Simulated scan of single mutants.
Amino acid sequence: MTQYNLEELKLLNQVFFALFLVADFALLLHFNNSEFPWFALLGAGVGLFIIVLCWAGKKFTYFLATLLVCTATFSIIYNWHAIFH
């Protein structure tokens, strides 16, 4: 495997890890609460973003960007009925 392929796989793993992390946490919040706690999801996503950014710097940029996008997306998806009711 070339170095280029290895770097591409690392970037892809960062994106998928952020996606699955937020998706699983959002699903857990959805199943355990009668009304979806969107503020808890946003707080956890932004908090993790700040921690990873301070800890690792810009090394995991794709993870951080995907984390914020997925947090906002899943917050809108699970609150769709409350936003457009």
Rank of each mutant, 00 (worst) to 15 (best):
M1N: 08
M1V: 13
M1L: 14
T2H: 10
Q3I: 14
Q3T: 12
Y4M: 13
L6R: 12
L9D: 15
L9H: 14
L9M: 12
L9Q: 13
K10G: 05
L11C: 05
L11M: 12
L11P: 04
L12I: 11
F16R: 09
F17T: 13
F17I: 11
A18L: 03
A18E: 02
F20Q: 03
V22K: 01
V22T: 05
V22W: 04
A23F: 13
A23Q: 08
F25M: 03
F25A: 06
A26V: 02
L27K: 07
L27W: 14
L27S: 14
L28D: 09
H30G: 02
H30E: 12
H30Y: 09
N32D: 14
N32H: 07
N32E: 08
N33C: 04
S34H: 09
S34F: 09
S34D: 04
E35K: 14
F36G: 02
F36I: 02
W38Y: 08
F39L: 07
A40C: 07
A40V: 08
A40Y: 04
L41G: 00
L42N: 06
L42P: 06
G43M: 02
V46N: 05
G47C: 00
L48A: 04
I50W: 01
I50V: 07
I51M: 03
L53N: 08
C54D: 10
C54M: 11
C54T: 14
W55C: 04
A56C: 05
A56W: 07
A56S: 13
G57N: 01
G57I: 01
K58E: 12
K59P: 05
K59A: 10
K59E: 09
T61W: 15
T61M: 09
Y62H: 14
Y62W: 13
F63A: 04
L64V: 00
A65T: 15
T66M: 08
T66P: 03
L67V: 01
L68A: 02
L68F: 02
V69E: 13
V69N: 11
V69G: 06
V69P: 05
C70W: 14
C70L: 10
C70S: 13
C70V: 11
T71F: 01
T71Q: 03
A72D: 05
T73P: 07
T73Y: 11
T73W: 11
F74N: 02
F74M: 12
I76M: 14
I77S: 08
I77M: 05
I77H: 08
N79F: 02
W80R: 15
H81R: 06
H81W: 03
H81Q: 09
A82G: 15
I83K: 00
I83L: 07
F84T: 07
F84Q: 05
F84V: 15
F84R: 12
H85M: 08
